[in-house]
């Protein structure tokens, strides 16, 4: 009946989608191409075909004396992995405490966390630096990791997930079966929360992997720095003298691992994003 307008609309939709897909992928395509080409080739002009300098660029970046890339990767991995573990474990614990138990401060505690749900950490950055300096934690990785224990957004996701997937009767059954409260949490609640924990762990990991503002303020020694800071250092170096193959390679190192993990787990991640938004 109205096949025709639908048909036209479909064509427009596909055109827009293809343009957007191109925008999303093209830059990464250039990145991947350029990280395989030597400085001279890159200066010479753009090419759609990869070059042969991938290994050379990689070695150059890894062995750059001024740019501690290997330790940067290591630091980034440590911070991101610890943050992911702490944020998911303690957010689940907090959500469980507020979900499964009745106590006087339950409601105020919940309202409080909801109020700070989207409060950015930047606003207290100044005091944060002061406090961790006094605690002797400046220029260490701890101040980047420990605050993850209080992650309101992860908490909210966990709490919503519990409401839909963790009946209170299950907890009571565990009590009768002989679990103490910690055992109930570790042996019953955590396994049930696994899908939610996996999704949030990925998000927490990525977020901290990409984090720049606070680490840049906290970490001052070269050997302690994380990847985003190294990229910023690259930017402030004298750019014209720089080996462009190395620049593209460092960006590749910072981005590609995340993209590979993302493509492998994309189904769960996209579903997780959607879940975060379904709020009635």
């Amino acid at each position: 009946m109205d096949k025709k307008p639908s048909h036209a609309r479909t064509v427009i939709a596909y055109i827009v989608l293809i343009i957007l897909t191109f925008l999303c992928l093209f830059f990464f395509y250039i990145l991947l191409i350029n990280c395989t080409r030597s400085h001279q080739q890159i200066q010479h002009g753009f090419s759609f075909l990869p070059g042969s300098s991938f290994v050379k660029n990689f070695n150059n970046v890894i062995h750059d004396a001024k740019l501690p890339v290997l330790s940067g990767i290591k630091n980034s991995l440590i911070v991101s992995a610890c943050c992911a573990a702490l944020a998911t474990y303690f957010s689940t614990l907090t959500a469980y405490g507020l979900y499964a138990y009745n106590f006087k401060l339950k409601k105020p505690a919940f309202i409080f966390i909801m109020l700070i749900l989207v409060m950015p950490t930047q606003v207290s950055a100044m005091g944060f630096i002061n406090v961790i300096t006094k605690m002797g934690m400046i220029n260490t990785l701890y101040p980047l990791i420990l605050p993850s224990v209080a992650a309101p957004a992860v908490f909210y996701f966990m709490y919503s997930y519990m409401q839909s997937s963790l009946p209170l009767e299950l907890i009571e059954a565990a009590r009768i079966d002989g679990c103490n409260e910690f055992k109930t949490f570790n042996r019953i609640v955590l396994p049930i929360m696994k899908p939610a924990i996996a999704v949030q762990a990925i998000f927490a990991f990525v977020q901290n992997w990409n984090n720049y503002f606070i680490p840049a303020l906290v970490l001052q020694e070269n050997s302690k720095r994380t990847l985003p800071i190294l990229i910023a250092m690259l930017r402030s170096a004298d750019f014209l003298k720089f080996d462009m193959g190395k620049v593209y390679m460092l960006i590749t190192i910072a981005i590609v691992p995340i993209i590979i993990v993302y493509i492998a787990l994309s189904r769960y991640i996209v579903a997780g994003v959607a879940l975060g938004g379904v709020k009635e």
């Binding site: 830059f27 720049y212 985003p228 910023a232 460092l250």
Partner: peptide, 11 residues
Amino acid sequence: LIMASAFAMLF
């Protein structure tokens, strides 16, 4: 999911 700083550097 891209590191914003790396993305900016790329641009």
